[in-house]
Simulated scan of single mutants.
Amino acid sequence: MDVKILVLFYGYGSIVELAKEILKGAEEEGAETRLRKVRETIYPELIEKFHVPLDNTKDIPEVSLEDLKWADGIAIGSPTRYGNMAGGMKTFLDTTAPLWRAGDLYGKPVTFFTEASTIHGGHETTILTMSTYAYHFGMIIVPLGYAITEISSTVTGGSPYGATHLSSKKELDENEIKIARFQGKRLAQVAKKLKNS
């Protein structure tokens, strides 16, 4: 039975690259996938002033509530903003009440990823802030644990909580890519087991 995986992110730059690697991991596990973005909420004048690189998201569709209903498993990612998810992601998640009321996400597996500009910039707390939605929906949180050795050998690219990236490095390193792909595979594996049970 095919499993459907949604990889959802807010932001630009390296968070997009992490999302794509998680997507590849799910596809390696045979999943049908969708990559979706949350609408950008930065003021247009700031996008121009700070040269925000939105080019790498222009061909990615914006997420809808139907995408969440469609998925058997979901990966959610946001850059950290002061140890919390970005406001754009929270704004979108706050619109999901119809799914909560209908129980549409109950029992679905979910996993989280992030990036921050410093090593201690809130990687794990950002994942925790996103995870609170999963508790209210009755979703099954899929952490990484220490099942992949790269988690123990990197200081920038992930933890038992999920894949992360140190954005001051610009490009993902080999450990970050392996961890992100593992996360996508693991999500697809758990989704399959739950769908077939």
Rank of each mutant, 00 (worst) to 15 (best):
D104E: 11
D104F: 04
Y106W: 13
Y106P: 00
Y106M: 12
G107C: 05
K108G: 02
P109H: 08
P109N: 08
P109G: 07
V110W: 02
F112R: 05
F113H: 10
F113L: 10
T114Q: 12
E115H: 14
E115L: 15
A116N: 11
T118V: 12
T118F: 11
I119N: 01
I119W: 05
I119M: 11
G121D: 05
H123R: 13
H123D: 02
E124V: 02
E124S: 02
T125W: 02
T125R: 03
T125L: 06
T126A: 00
T126S: 04
I127S: 04
L128Q: 07
L128D: 09
S131Q: 14
S131L: 09
S131I: 00
T132Y: 09
T132H: 09
T132M: 12
Y133A: 00
A134E: 02
A134R: 03
A134S: 13
Y135T: 15
G138W: 08
M139Q: 12
I140T: 12
I141E: 02
V142W: 04
P143S: 12
P143K: 06
P143Q: 10
L144I: 12
L144A: 10
Y146A: 04
A147H: 15
A147Q: 15
I148N: 02
T149H: 14
I151Q: 00
I151F: 00
I151C: 03
I151Y: 03
T154G: 07
G158F: 01
S159I: 04
Y161G: 01
Y161C: 01
G162P: 01
T164G: 12
L166E: 04
S167Q: 08
S167K: 12
K170D: 13
E171M: 11
E171T: 14
E171H: 09
E171F: 09
L172Q: 00
E174S: 13
E174H: 09
E174P: 10
N175A: 14
N175M: 05
E176S: 15
E176A: 15
E176T: 15
I177L: 02
I179N: 03
A180Y: 01
A180M: 04
R181K: 11
F182Y: 13
Q183T: 13
Q183F: 08
Q183G: 02
G184F: 05
K185V: 09
K185R: 15
R186C: 08
R186P: 01
Q189R: 15
Q189N: 13
Q189T: 15
